[in-house]
Design a protein around this nucleic acid. Sequence first.
DNA 1: CTGTTAGCGCCTTCAT
DNA 2: ATGAAGGCGCTAACAG
Lengths: 347, 347
Amino acid sequence: MRTETPTSPRTLEDIAREAGVSVATVDRVLHGRSGVRPDTARRVREAVARYDFRPLRAAAELARAKAIRFALIAPTGDNIFMQMIRDQVDELSGWLASRRASVETILTDVFNPPVLSEALESLMGRVDGVAVVALDHQSVRAAIDDLAASGMFVVTLVSDVPGSRRHHYVGIDNVAAGRTAASLIGRLSHARAGKIGVVAGSQLLRDHAERIFGFQQVIGFEYPNLTVLAPVEGGDRDSLNEDLMARLLADQPDLIGVYNVGAGTPGVAKAISDAGRERQIVFVAHDLTSFTRRALLRGVIDAVVHQDPGREARSAMRVLLGLVRHEPVLTEQEKIPIEIVMRDNLP
Amino acid sequence: MRTETPTSPRTLEDIAREAGVSVATVDRVLHGRSGVRPDTARRVREAVARYDFRPLRAAAELARAKAIRFALIAPTGDNIFMQMIRDQVDELSGWLASRRASVETILTDVFNPPVLSEALESLMGRVDGVAVVALDHQSVRAAIDDLAASGMFVVTLVSDVPGSRRHHYVGIDNVAAGRTAASLIGRLSHARAGKIGVVAGSQLLRDHAERIFGFQQVIGFEYPNLTVLAPVEGGDRDSLNEDLMARLLADQPDLIGVYNVGAGTPGVAKAISDAGRERQIVFVAHDLTSFTRRALLRGVIDAVVHQDPGREARSAMRVLLGLVRHEPVLTEQEKIPIEIVMRDNLP
DNA sequence: CTGTTAGCGCCTTCAT
DNA sequence: ATGAAGGCGCTAACAG
């Protein structure tokens, strides 16, 4: 049995001949430009439909070919996951170059609203699109809206700014990610009763806040045997996280699970190891890095809730390029899945 | 702080001028074609390097532009996952058409080696590349080798044929998938002791055999409390699977987990539900479908080991197109991850 | 061994 | 409202 998808047969010129008009007119109809009598437009559309005509992308690209400039705004500092994002974007430079496009990476203190919004504003008129790891704050939202209003394309990355006029968000559904972490801890803790510690970077980060929300929701509804302690905030830093975690372990003898919402996982892990509680505590963290990979293999971490930085980087650049070229965004393909990584499906 | 990736500045012609040669010579060097004196080649390469020159893809594509034909060989029958693969490939027809390419889907009895290899042989000279869901059998391997030798590109899909000359395999690591299923069942069964049932389609299918291997390995080494029963084979059919599963449940009162390696999950699920053992048995199956999605939500299935059919379809077509155009395959980007899907990270 | 040149299919002024 | 024609950058056939 066979299903065929024949090659679209002809070119603009064939369609033009078929419809009894010139190529320029076909082009106008194809791009919905004005200046075509409704009647001729119809004839053209019919010819297009009859042959299932699709303009050859390569030719269109070549004919347009203008240099395009993008920017990536990402946090300074040693957050490994953010480094991976930056590296992955850098690795796209070849891909972009062969399309007459380029990215410029701007590192900034993302935790500081005025600094971040100034970095955004500084791009006005200098680039065609920006991908930004953003804090969800009034002034940041305003800056994004400004840029969008000026005709620039804005994509939020990893953490969203929902109220804003950003054109697209590239990242996981963080509420669902929190729920996922909760059900992992719930199911891996064997119906024992006890307390669950939550370590976050800052609840001002929308992704962190959303994860905590989803986490509490599922534990609260489905695991009455478990109690979620109030989240502690360590600013995504190892040293602070280690102190906070050590105190938690000392204060809560019946702690049976830990959820680290943000970065700084090595600090949390160290405190757990130093307390000699590795095997007794179910530990779920985010994002696969060289550290979390080793910790999974050693059994310190039980599961990682992951988002693929390579995929996010590619998606961001692909979406920006598509927006600039007025191509439709394939939402299905651009959705970033929440990945559960345990020892045996380590990629 | 800023990192810049400037747009590659110029065109073939600029490089030619810079190197004091003609565009044709630059083109030759760029594509490693013969007929260039080593010395001039060096000068060209230097100019290319100096400007970090990248040829504009769109122009190259346009200049080459030949119609390309692909085929997909997939199983007949009502296997939902295979339907999804077919649908996803069909949905790429627009993407392909705008690149002067097309796919033809050929349905065949993949379980039958002679039929499958004949279907493969029939493509000889008719298409430029084929993606095939293959049985790992002597005659199939021979057919693949024949096609490859004739200059056709062959990609195996979902299930690999390792000994053959196929150019690429698009699909998950099935041994790792089996290990993943095992550690899910092991960890979700709360250290209880008991038996684990395994239902497969056929051990002649390489993917099924590999999954079983990985599964037994992990349960054997890491969960001494669990015993894996001999796999039963239901040919991926619901009705047969249901019977087999019902018998298993009747015969094994201490059955605490079930791993369904292939399709026909509804049959297995029905037997478990009818026996009233939904809550007591840890059930892990493969591939997210409308059925497994509902079963996850209802709690009948505890976890699904998934591979994304859309991603596989796109990867297969992208790789084939790349092979035909002699572009390098980005192995990193084309790797298909093993996804763990539980209720809370349902996409 | 190297250079010249005519396209590839579409977009975009500029005329009409 | 419509058409004619010159590019866009690269490839490949043909000349030298």
